[in-house]
């Protein structure tokens, strides 16, 4: 079967790639697009390590077909920092030791960013339920939740 040609926007850049009809978006990101920051932990949508946004919706890229990206705007971990300037969430994760091995970190950050875009003032419970689709086995989530809450508070302050 011939490969499919897909035109999409990733992290603000127009991108084109070829894929098999049954390739997932995660396959395309990690393969032809060379964006390996999104990780595969389960390929079943249970761990969230492959989290990206599609038109601002948080999705597991392992559950999306690559061909579905056509005409949409995707954001991945690689687009989170602006050049050398880290996103406040990235900076806070570093300062708070909110990562250990780092395999879940890309997905955690993309998911946390999606939360704060929607809800700049989340409660701890809201953070915990929003991130319930992102597994972390190293941290017990404590420092991740604190980092998200503190970043939200600082971003609110900066916006005033």
């Amino acid at each position: 079967m011939a490969k499919l040609h897909v035109s999409t926007t990733i992290n603000g850049e127009p991108m084109e790639f070829l894929c098999e009809p049954n390739d997932t978006m995660l396959d395309a990101l990690r393969g032809p697009l060379g964006l390996t920051g999104s990780k595969e932990g389960c390929a079943s949508g249970d761990c969230g390590a492959c989290s990206i946004t599609v038109d601002d919706q948080l999705v597991c890229s392992c559950l999306m077909l690559a061909a579905e990206a056509d005409g949409h705007e995707l954001r991945t971990i690689e687009g989170m920092a602006q050049g050398e300037k880290l996103h406040p969430l990235q900076q806070k994760f570093l300062e708070q030791a909110a990562l250990q091995c780092g395999i879940c970190t890309s997905g955690m950050l993309v998911a946390s960013d999606a939360l704060l875009r929607r809800n700049p003032n989340p409660t701890e419970e809201e953070v915990r339920f929003w991130l319930a689709g992102n597994l972390c086995r190293c941290t017990g989530y404590d420092k991740i939740v604190r980092a998200v809450m503190e970043t939200a508070a600082e971003m609110r302050e900066a916006a005033q």
């Binding site: 964006l35 390996t36 991945t76 990235q90």
Partner: peptide, 20 residues
Amino acid sequence: STIRPDGVDKVTGRAAFAAD
């Protein structure tokens, strides 16, 4: 609690794990 040397790579997706 200093910033880890591999930290920026891990929060930007640059860090190379085996499958990468």
